[in-house]
């Protein structure tokens, strides 16, 4: 039985949240992980998710929103099913990160933080993702793709479009 009646999350996620609220010396520490897992399940951090997480951690909704707005990976609006995040920071920039970004923009027909009409893809220009020695690099959701070329990007996007992409959760 979940700690919260009528949880908006799946039974698996609700069980995970029950546990998360107990493992830290202070309950509130579970906030950032909970927001991430909530987003993984719903696609973004919805108003209902904010309210349930606040309840689970004995916080005000405002406390949750205050933290939510700080972290760049957390969003309050849906992204595409596959969120393409292209790094353009220095190591990637020197090896063609901007060409990769421009290629994705043209290929998907969307700009920074936009979603394709069918909701399949969204695009983001992101800061350093820690793949500097395998640049240029991007992430699709949590999955890394390194040593990119425009040809490689086409194949990767094709894979996701046809449901063959990895989807690390």
């Amino acid at each position: 039985m979940s700690a919260i009646a009528n949880s908006i999350f799946s039974p698996e996620a609700a069980a995970r949240f029950d546990k998360l609220a107990t493992i830290y010396p202070v309950k509130r520490s579970a906030l950032v992980p909970m927001l991430l897992y909530a987003q993984d399940e719903i696609g973004y951090v919805s108003e209902a998710a904010i309210q349930e997480i606040a309840k689970r951690l004995d916080l005000f909704d405002l406390d949750v929103r205050n933290v939510l707005s700080y972290y760049s990976m957390l969003r309050t609006k849906p992204a595409g099913k596959y969120n393409v995040q292209v790094c353009t920071n220095i190591s990637c920039m020197l090896r063609g990160g901007y060409e990769i970004l421009d290629h994705c923009k043209a290929k998907l027909g969307i700009g920074h933080k936009q979603v394709t009409a069918d909701g399949q893809f969204s695009l983001e220009e992101v800061e350093c993702i820690g793949a500097c020695c395998w640049a240029p690099a991007m992430q699709v959701n949590y999955d890394f793709h390194d040593d990119l070329t425009t040809i490689k990007v086409d194949a990767i996007l094709q894979d996701y479009a046809e449901g063959r992409g990895k989807d690390v959760k």
């Binding site: 509130r28 950032v32 951690l57």
Partner: peptide
């Protein structure tokens, strides 16, 4: 656990704040 995207959290005192569930 992981963070959720913030360079600043690599600084030790900001990291502790993040781990305490704060900005």
């Amino acid at each position: 656990q992981t963070g959720a995207g913030a360079y600043e959290v690599g600084e030790e005192s900001a990291l502790m704040e993040s781990l305490e569930g704060k900005r």
